[in-house]
Amino acid sequence: MAISGTALVLFLILHMVGNLKIFFGAEAFDHYAHWLREIGAPLLPHSGFLWIQRVGLLVALGLHIWSAAVLTIRARKARPVKYAHRKPVQGSYAARTMRWGGVIVFFFVVYHILDLTTRTFNPVADPAQANAAIVQGFAPGRWYVTAFYVLAVVTLGFHLRHGIWSGLQTLGVSNARRERVLKATAFAVAFVTCAGFLAVPFAVLTGLVK
């Protein structure tokens, strides 16, 4: 859970930072999208790095879901009779929604790939036109896309808030002195990642990015 999660979190941060390129103008963003396909050239073929990354992410995601499934099955088996009256005492909202939150994020990722990678659901089919795909994809007329995006990113934020700290605890990095700092760091990373991802559709909606 923690190791696969680490890979996914690192990707998310890079992805979020990359997205912010859109604030440097359409040309800069399209150029960034083009560069992603040319990383490692001429040693790697066109999109070679992307495919290596995709395979790596798929493995990490697979392991993450597999670990989550094992933990969920074990949890079900460990409490065959439920409480009639159950009250969470401390567990944060984030900690309690890891499983369903993860499912929501998973479905979003599937949709997100069909929308902005394969462009199946996107009005802009040309893969070179990254900026146009974002601007038209988040157009006010497609408000439901933006709504789902916001829901997924906020869910992801909660997932990260508990997940990052929990991962550090699982890897044995945490201790009494560091616990507060690590929890605050997890919150900060979750918040900044969330804000970074949300900045793009809101910039499109307000006309900041054209």
Partner: peptide, 13 residues
């Protein structure tokens, strides 16, 4: 037959 820990912190509270 105990479950796995997911660091929710319910135990310590």
């Amino acid at each position: 037959g105990f479950g796995g820990c997911t660091n929710t912190g319910e135990c310590t509270s």
